[in-house]
Write a protein that binds this DNA or RNA. Structure first.
Lengths: 218, 218
DNA sequence: AATTTTTTGTATCAGCCGCTACAGTCTTGC
DNA sequence: GCAAGACTGTAGCGGCTGATACAAAAAATT
């Protein structure tokens, strides 16, 4: 075990200077945007190089190959989404917060003219079958996303805002599926309406799962 | 207008011999399978040629370019899905039929080890932004799918199986989104459970929208 | 100031891709 | 049977892609 000193993760820099980190970050964010707009397969490293204003050697200096860059992009988008699902104040632990979250998702999509779809979801089809490691990364990102949504629903459940028969874990999966499916249909039709409808129907179901009478004050 | 007689749809054959049609169909079905498994970008025309046992010239004889082949593949998958949504007997106009439809979707996905996702949905991300005509084709396919589902729900509504406040059109969109989102999550996790959950939650909502008392016999 | 390391630019390669040209074979219609 | 046209095989082209080699510039470490 102590012998293989030379091959420890080829591309791992011992240290990055501030300038180096800035360049690396710029490559990732530019690649993330391009891949969101044109898909992974539709984004060549040459495109990334031009858009980021770097040479070919930079990309291979900071990332060993295209797959490593893709994984960095997945991490970038995952971080962006998680930073979005936990808004500044609290979590998704009330109907108001859930409705506000819905509005934000719809607004975001509309601002993009429904192009690109979900930054994470639109990468799934192109990567899942031929890049197992990327699929695992994406699955991990969605797991965190789902957990964040589930936490809010469980908080509502524990607080008595949902009936006993409600299952926060299942509702979280249904919500996430509505986001992805609704976004896909919205991207197709260039119209946010399907996303609104899909989310509202699940949210209405959650609302119907509130206790029949307002829960008594403690 | 009468002068341009030569360029009328370059690849349109005056007639296809039985052999020619067989070859053409083989190319489409092979391409459909490959693109479902590896995505559009991950399927080269060379792959299609090898798998179908044809030369390069055949593909360009029956389809002018790759985009035309892709559009034929979209039509192929659309047909397959529509043939699935209207099962032999009736339509999706009862809870039993809806639950059976759900089971079929889950079974289909499981038989494929959750690989490839939805034959139509998995093409969206890779084509929507860079191939407008393909996006339109996909949108058309989804419209027909949605209409088939909506027809069933409207039949239930008209029959009095759903309360007045229920909206079949919105429920159809929510169902389709659950199919697509659930399939995407299932593909990611290599587990049909998310599809089951997403569909069941929407179906439970539909079931909750039945009249409070069983509707009176006519 | 010297030296090591990080960062960047340029030039280039081998391979695959979509696509075409062209010649040959088989089938159809008369 | 015999032209016309539908079908098929091979060979190859230009362009792009991911990836590499190599050396110079910039920065950090000593």
């Amino acid at each position: 075990m102590a012998g293989r000193g030379t091959n420890e993760l080829a591309v791992k820099q011992r240290r990055l200077t501030p300038k180096g980190r800035a360049t690396r970050d710029r490559i990732v964010s530019v690649a993330a945007e391009l891949m969101h707009e044109h898909g992974v397969a539709g984004t060549s490293l040459g495109d990334v190089q031009k858009a980021a204003g770097v040479g070919a050697s930079q990309v291979y200096h900071y990332f060993g190959d295209k797959q490593s860059l893709i994984r960095a992009v997945i991490a970038y988008h995952t971080e962006a989404i998680l930073g979005t699902v936990r808004p500044h104040l609290g979590r998704l632990d009330s109907m108001e917060a859930l409705r506000a979250w819905r509005d934000m998702l719809v607004t975001n999509l509309r601002q993009r003219n429904c192009e690109g779809g979900c930054p994470l979801g639109s990468l799934v089809a192109g990567l899942a079958e031929d890049f197992p490691e990327c699929r695992a990364d994406l699955a991990g990102g969605f797991d965190q996303w789902e957990a964040a949504v589930r936490d809010g629903l469980e908080a509502m459940y524990d607080r008595g805002d949902l009936r006993r028969k409600a299952d926060p874990a299942r509702l979280a999966v249904a919500l996430l599926a509505a986001v992805e499916g609704g976004t896909l249909l919205a991207q197709l039709h260039r119209d946010p309406a399907p996303l609104e409808t899909a989310l509202d129907e699940v949210l209405d179901r959650i609302e119907d799962l509130r206790p029949r009478r307002a829960q008594p004050r403690l």
